[in-house]
Design a protein around this nucleic acid. Sequence first.
RNA 1: GCUCGAGUGGUGGAAUUGGUAGACACGUUGGACUUAAAAUCCAAUGGCCAUUAUGGCCGUAUGGGUUCAAGUCCCAUCUCGAGUACCA
Length: 1028
Amino acid sequence: MQYDFNSIEKKWQEYWAKNQTFKAQNNSEKEKFYVLDMFPYPSGAGLHVGHPLGYIASDIYARYKRHKGFNVLHPQGYDSFGLPAEQYAIQTGQHPAVTTEKNITTYRRQLDQLGFSFDWSREVRTSNPKYYKWTQWIFIQLFNSWYNKDSDKAEAITDLVSVFEKEGNSSIHAVCDDDVSNFSAAEWNAFSEKEKQETLLKYRLTYLAESEVNWCPALGTVLANDEIVNGVSERGGHPVVRKKMTQWSMRITAYAQRLLDGLQKVDWPQPLKDSQTNWIGRSVGASVSFKVKGSDKEISVFTTRPDTIFGVSFMTLAPEHDLVQQITTAEQKEAVETYIEATAKRSERERMADVKTISGAFTGAYAEHPFTKESIPIWIGDYVLAGYGTGAVMSVPCGDQRDYDFAKHFGIDIPNIFKDVDISEEAFADKENTVIANSDFLNDLPYKEATKKAIAELEKLGQGEGKINYRLRDAVFSRQRYWGEPFPVYYDADGLPHMIEEQYLPITLPEVDKYLPTETGEPPLGNATEWAWDTAANKVVSNGKIDNETVFSLDLNTMPGWAGSSQYFNRYMDPHNDEEIFSQEAINYWQDVDLYIGGSEHATGHLLYSRFWQKFMFDKGLVPKDEFAKKLINQGMITGTSAFAKRVGYQIVVLADYLDSLSNEEKENVKLINDKYSIIKDRYLSEGIVKKMRVSYRKVDNKEQEEHNKLVEKIDKFLIEPIGRDIEKMGLSGKVVIDNGLRSYFRTHVLVDLVNASDELDVEGFKKWRPEYAEAVFIGEDGEIIEEGNGKFIVGREIEKMSKSKFNVVNPDAICEEYGADSLRLYEMFLGPLEQSKPWNTAGITGVHSFLKKLWRLYHSGADGAFEVSEAEPSKDSWKTLHKTIKKVEEDIENFSFNTTVSTFMICVNELSGQKCISKAVLEPLAILVSPYAPHIAEELWQKLGHEESISEAPFPKFEEKYLVESSKEYPISFNGKMRFKLELPLDMSKEEIESTVMAHEKTQSQLQGRTPKKVIVVPGKIVNIVG
RNA sequence: GCUCGAGUGGUGGAAUUGGUAGACACGUUGGACUUAAAAUCCAAUGGCCAUUAUGGCCGUAUGGGUUCAAGUCCCAUCUCGAGUACCA
């Protein structure tokens, strides 16, 4: 009987669905285990082979834990709000809900065919009102909370109000806006309702504030810092500018320290922890305030080096600093204004790119040194950023290279305050070796003591204090988009926000006739005619009724992408609960995620915001753990095309008609595949035997051309960026030639000289070809090295994006059809370590596929391949094979070393085949071992072995040491550390006996050639080393 | 620039505490079966040298070091990748 994977896989997928095999119960005698994948955004392109990698790994682990007797929660859902569906809606007018639904159907079909053991009864979708009701609910909870520094947790805003009523705000230590001024109880009580609400807004954990935001005109929305890469939007690569807008913000900065501390107790990858740590950016130092001479103004700065305070020779303000206008003297006004104008013209990006040019202007004003009372000139310079610290620095040129360069450039004094250090060439920034000099009371102190002392003295003067500064900013939470969660917020006549009561949630998205901003520039929700809140009827009503008495306007923004993903892991525990976000019973049973698998690109986005909300939920007593995931693994990316050429070796297609120009020697190394194409042996290519190469193009059809032109319109040139480290080594220069990946479609052939070409491809040429099916072909400097790779080179940003459609060619559907889901699962694991990025190449899949066929044959040794196993006792060798496999598989799964497990299976099956083992006693446990990896074939074999229940709950085989006990060992005998021969010796032999046996051996004697060894090292059970 | 990670055959990758480098697989080459192809099976496969067989030398980015023994530990250098960037 053949291994008919198609019907087997279909059969078991239907069985699992019908029997709800993987449905998890919220209470059980068994220990719980929660395995979670980062839920996908259902894009229109469907799943590509890179997607399932993490899902396969988590599925293996989940299935393994079931075999180990755990009650496993392994849910899946969709992060279904997002930009692509909205942009598609703008183009086509189709409602995003419709396209999203359609995409989800495709995703579900694709996920199902891979045989995942998800509990689909718990599916969540962030765009489902029943789900986002709870996203809105959390928003309201945050609004109703403030952060108390004394208890170091979030507390109810009502408690804060009662303190204000009794004692004002002087005893309150809160994380709040900087501009909160002190008020007494009497003053508070005298506040108007409007004043009270405005004040409270400065304390709430989500607050409305006019803030400078990253505005992306092309997308028509605000972006968070983590949505911007190199000054352009992460999606689409559009320019981003700064703009002032009134926005909801999340006071994540309140949790900065706890977010740092929490990293200590989770088992997450170090690089990810590092990038969160960097993102939070804690720096310890002091705030110092400098009086401005001849004025009542003060300039506050943050410094990490208060010990260098006597080295201050000037101050620098960011050009945008509030005080600049006020302190600039009449004589300097023109210079300052010219400078400000010049910097304003330069984009943020230009400013960052151009670090070397030093520029600035003197304001004419002076500050007073807190200790020496000397005058310090105040400058402005764009090397000081408005957005960090206070936007002003005390400049210590001898201790900071940027200050040093600035001082040199403008001829400002550079006093030296370091003992025995030469600062004539550059600044001295080495804290550890610092000894202070020329600094009054700080003289002869090292860095640490000097810092302490300086802060103490500043405190005495009331001009400074120790301070910890964080780079982390509050997160802007409003987006000017349609396809997101609406805010449960309406505004009164004063423009003050009010939360809609919980019982009236969810506030569902209104219908709009177009998804673009309104003509007056309001967000898309401004197009809705039915978008006002009736406080009497407690429902959404027509805009026409707004009277600011009972009917008010609703917020026109929606929440950002990360809103829906910041608590979804907890919602899975009790996903159908309409009364609560989740029951306490459910959360207390499941607690937290035991294993979370997903991409590292979420390091400073989703994973930071989720931790923030989890800590907030913890403060509110809603969840028992303040970190939501104990262990996290970042699966590597499967790069669809990038290193393809590397992987296939340098297998090159040469046009047959080109062969004529080859020398005889070259021709010998070229094999004709048909009258048009031939393959050069890879090694001959790397040796440089083939000298030149032709390149082939395919013309595109009209439809392809049309789609492509749309993209081309947006760009005016393409930069060629070779990736991968081989390129330079190969002495390649030149440009990419666009080609198709489907050799059978080649029609036009063009020989391109790559050496002399510029590295820009003109748009006209580009328009003619389909870049997403690019093959790049290179000719080396002397014409001797040639390389071709399927998409080995990416062409600018747009191509990178387009190449996603390339993945459609390698989508899992085709592979499942040809080799089966079990083969795909095994293959993706076999490619390499889970956490490592690796290129996709279908070539190797035959290896794992033939392994599955061998496995199948092991159970089908009867006539004509009929199923047959024997009740006979297995041989000693077979027992040994089985048990060493059990041991290795178990260890590997626990270590997430899934690639080596697949090797282990192969070795096991090869050995058992060699032993002609057909004993049930071995084959039965083997099926269980394989089942997490290749569940369909395992179920089928399990059933054939006579079981009626699914294999999924079968206990994992128990490893028994006794089968591995050996009586002898083949010792490697080495001479000076190099293994020369092997010798079989009993394991119970003593050290001395081993030594004498080895020394007596004739091979030892022939190695020594009469010399007497200096020393003989014997490590029993391991090795013998003879030192001569 | 800074932080972190990595560098092993033609390719993906093994080597768990310092103890037989290259497991397993792809690819390649040769062979069996076949009218042929596919599938399957067998053998070889790090490089160089030698051979009737046995064998020898080199080899884990480079240069040093520690050790009886180093892919693994230490120092320096080079290269690649990821993150971050005038962060005061």
